[in-house]
Every structure is written in C-alpha cells, then in structure tokens.
C-alpha cells in the first residue's frame, strides 16, 4: 500500500528532479500513513540507489535487466505497473521529463489511473484526493480531483524543496518478466550534449534571443551560464533560425522551465515565450529597449546593451 516513486538516473546519478519526486512521494506517504518505495530501471550502482533514502524512500526496487538500459516508455510502464502491483501502490509519483511523460501516459492506460500532470503542490486528502496543477501553459491553475482508484502525480520542477537526512534506503532486486512486445522500437542514433546542465533540470537558466544578433555571439551567454553553473536556453526565433538547437528553445511550443532564476538577454518577451518561463521563481530581463514587454513580467530589469551587460555580470559572478 506504499507510495511508489518512479526515479530516473542521468549519467548514473539520481536526477535532481527525481530527488524532488522522492521527497514529494515520501511526504504523501507520510500523509497517508504509509512508506515510500522508489523504483529504478536499468543497470545502476546500488550505493547510489541507496541515497534515495536521504530524500525519504525506505526501499528501492531495482529492475536491473540490461534491456532496460535503453529508455523505453512502453517497457518502463510495464515494469512500473508490475512494481505498483507488487507494492499495492495506489499513488505513483514522478517528476516530469520526456521519458517520465511517455511512461506515465502508458501507465495511466494500463492501470486505468487518473493522471494529474504539472502538479505544483502536495495533495489535499480527505473525502477526496485533490491536487493543484498548472494549466494553460502556466497561465492558470486547476484544483483537480482524482476519482480513480489509482492516481499518478507528475510533478513540475520546483514543486517542493527536498530536505535531506542521512538515512539510506534498502535496495531490492526487482525482476518482473519483460514483455517482448514492448521492445518494438529500434533506436538507431542518439545525440546528447554531455557534461552540460540539462535545461529541464537546471536551477539557473541563462537564455538569449535575437538581440544577440547571431550564433557567433553566444560565447557571452555561455560564459555567464558557466560562471553561474546554469543551463543555456533560447527563444523560438533563435531556434527557428538554427542559431541554437531545438532542445534549448523555451516557450509555448518548446521546453517549459521553472527554475529558481531565469535570466533573459535580448528577448522581448512575447506572450508565447512567457508561457514557457512564467513559473520561474525569479526573472531577470536585460534588453536595450525600455519598452520591451518582458520587463512587465520581470523581478529585476536592466535596460542596456547585452554585449556590455552580460560580460559585466559574468565578471561579477566570478568575483563572488
């Protein structure tokens, strides 16, 4: 009857967003008077998995079949469904990501579960099970009742700030029979930036727009991002012009981010761009045009030339 948390790894480590999901799941388990169990798929280091305990999981189910090393939403949904069944879990928690989204939708179909995506707060339990989720791309919230027996909560980044203890979780091997039919997709090539901060995971984001005038000028954006330990992002026109790859595009039709800090340089702030960033805790806007609409949605603003302001900010960060 535990709360089950789907946990993802990146380069062998539990993702930050998954740590948040574990902490959230453990809180829900506490509210329900039960324990939190994490489930991890693919080969992984047991010592790393035991760190799920620091965020409140008492147990980690580890499905270590090498066939699960390839991230496959279909196969993952089957394994997580088996884990939910074994644990009698009626609440399943995960952090939104491209893999988790694909997995969760299939899981909802399999378990006939009510799924709330972009959950931004702990549930309210009582006569009903209610969560608040972000809708209209961050322009509104919907208090939503989950009426199905099984519930899946896909939490948005920065929903909760994890507190760590020094507890460790017990790691148990989990080996459900894999379904051959789940492996019909063949991955022929993967291109992934390594060593960089993943944009959807980042606490700090430095983003730039057409005001940078060309892809050759991105060094000043990257320098500030590097000094801060931030991810880089861009506006839709920049991605459309191929100055930057599409996986950096934030906005209505790109990635939606909710970092602690979003710095926008040379982005005017069209409503479609705001939709992708409006859940950021603090927004800084740097633009030479004092009339740029983005200033109305910012916490801090600098009217100035990005080619002068960004290097000054980088120096100031380096001097900290």
């Amino acid at each position: 009857m535990s709360v089950l948390i789907f946990v993802e790894l990146d380069e062998g480590k539990i993702k930050k967003s998954s740590q948040e999901a574990i902490f959230y799941g453990a809180k829900v388990a506490g509210m329900m008077g039960t324990a939190a169990t994490a489930v991890v798929l693919g080969e992984a280091d047991s010592a790393e998995l035991a760190t799920a305990g620091r965020f409140g999981a008492t147990k980690v189910l580890h499905a270590a079949d090498p066939k699960l090393n390839e991230t496959n939403g279909m196969a993952y949904a089957s394994v997580v469904a088996a884990a939910a069944q074994q644990e009698g879990a009626k609440v399943i928690v995960l952090a939104k990501s491209s893999l988790a989204d694909a997995m969760a939708a299939r899981l909802a179909g399999k378990l006939k579960a009510g799924l709330a995506a972009n959950v931004i707060d702990l549930p309210q339990l009582g006569d009903s099970f209610r969560v608040k989720r972000s809708i209209y791309t961050g322009k509104a919230f919907a208090e939503t009742e989950l009426t199905a027996d099984t519930k899946i909560l896909a939490i948005k980044k920065n929903t909760i700030t994890p507190e760590e203890t020094d507890a460790t979780a017990s790691v148990e091997a989990f080996s459900p029979a894999l379904n051959e039919g789940d492996f019909g997709l063949k991955v022929t090539n993967t291109e992934k930036a390594t060593g960089d901060v993943l944009l959807p995971e980042a606490d700090l984001v430095v983003s730039a727009g057409r005001g940078l005038k060309g892809p050759e000028n991105w060094a000043i954006v990257e320098d500030l991002a590097k000094a801060l330990g931030a991810a880089t992002a861009c506006s839709k026109p920049v991605s459309d012009l191929d100055w930057r790859p599409h996986h950096e595009h934030v906005g209505q039709t790109g990635i939606k981010v909710s970092p602690n800090l979003y710095i926008a340089a040379g982005i005017s702030g069209a409503i479609q761009h705001l939709a992708g960033v409006n859940s950021s805790k603090v927004i800084v806007v740097i633009n030479k045009d004092p009339e740029a609409p983005f200033f109305k949605s910012a916490d801090y603003g600098i009217v100035g030339d990005v080619f002068e302001v960004l290097p000054r900010l980088t120096k100031a960060v380096q001097a900290l």
Binding site: K112, K139, E143, A298, D299
Partner: peptide, 17 residues
C-alpha cells in the same frame, strides 16, 4: 478519472526592480 473542481490565476509578480 479526473475532474476539475475550480480554477485560479497565478498571483501577479511584484513590481520590477
């Protein structure tokens, strides 16, 4: 399997500094 109970709008951001 789900049902919206009510909607709300985000609190406006404070004035820009």
């Amino acid at each position: 399997l789900t049902q919206v109970v009510s909607y709300e709008l985000p609190a406006p951001r404070g004035a820009v500094k």
